[in-house]
Design a protein around this nucleic acid. Structure first.
Lengths: 189, 189
DNA sequence: GTCTATACTAAGATAGAC
DNA sequence: GTCTATCTTAGTATAGAC
């Protein structure tokens, strides 16, 4: 944000995100991050006030993006098309630079819940889930619509796949998601 | 297992599981568990050798159940029916006494991965996911089949719902799961 | 079977030198 | 901007009395 610059701040963010994704937020100590960077803990504290601050800087941008999507979705009046477009946009975020962060969010909610920034983010996600099912009165259809969003996350998480996520797996996930979100041709209610 | 009996051991398990589900494994300290029980930390150590041991005792039974399901599934030769039955059985576990434990597992994999018992459990789950998609050559159909399993977990997790999980939401989840796992009538490949 | 007291470790964080 | 040194707090775990 300011003027100085030696890219250390960004290196910290990169290394921290790697470790957070790999072994979880709580299991990752500042000592570990510092060692991997070849600096001391104190150096980290020059760039970030707290450990929480590092996370905050990591999820800041995606928070804004999600917010925009939620806002946009609210203003649409064709719910089916809106849902589809939401899925496409979220998929775009995942395939863009936010894939690892999304995985981090998904795997570490207990930790994130305790952090202010994480709490806000969780609320956004909850709004998104609510939006996805909002126009369905049938509970089955509602869960199906919400599951569409989950599909995108599953397609981005090696825990559920045979291999690491790729552009291909993200694409497959989007297909499944759109299918789930679209109205059933011959279904009940 | 032995003879003495003052049910303290079971009370520890109950309180620990409550706190683990509520605030996560890492965030829950032994001091906290002890306080809520009205005993001291040392008392916990009489009943369990370590914190990890408490978790181990909690997930022991469900590990056996999952193992049985995986074994059974392997021996079937009608893949469609086998998948359906797997879903029904998992749903049964969730609706039975394992609901909270399942949620705990789902929310705390980064922590569980580090524990031996959790690591074993994660492998079982991975085998289940692989089994669900094993007979599908089309990647889309494969992800759909795996998502069936996820649907059951989503139906058991308030994070994705409007309210706390109930028998009704579990039933809805099972419907959606079975639908996802059954072959498409008019689909490609 | 449970408690008091305490050891040990590692975490996050700060002060002040360079 | 990074270091050394240190503080504080909290965690898991143990020894030994009751």
């Amino acid at each position: 944000m300011a003027g100085r610059r030696t890219d250390t701040r960004e290196r910290i963010q990169r290394v921290a995100l790697d470790l957070f994704v790999e072994q979880g937020y709580e299991k990752t100590s500042l000592r570990e991050i510092a060692e991997k960077l070849g600096v001391t803990k104190a150096a980290l504290y020059y760039h970030f006030r707290t450990k929480e601050d590092i996370v905050h800087s990591l999820i800041e941008d995606i928070g804004v993006s999600l917010d925009e999507i939620v806002e946009w979705a609210r203003q649409q009046d064709d719910p089916v098309r809106a849902r589809e477009e939401v899925l496409r946009r979220i998929s775009g975020l995942i395939q863009g630079r936010f894939g690892p962060i999304m995985r981090f969010m998904q795997d570490n909610q207990p930790a994130l819940k305790e952090l202010h920034a994480g709490h806000v983010l969780a609320k956004r996600m909850k709004e998104l889930f609510r939006f996805m099912g909002a126009d369905e009165s049938d509970p089955v259809a509602q869960l199906r619509a919400r599951l569409a969003l989950v599909a995108l996350m599953v397609g981005n998480n090696p825990q559920f796949l045979d291999e690491n996520p790729t552009a291909a797996s993200a694409d497959v996930a989007l297909r499944v998601a759109l299918e789930l979100a679209s109205p059933r041709p011959g279904a009940g209610t």
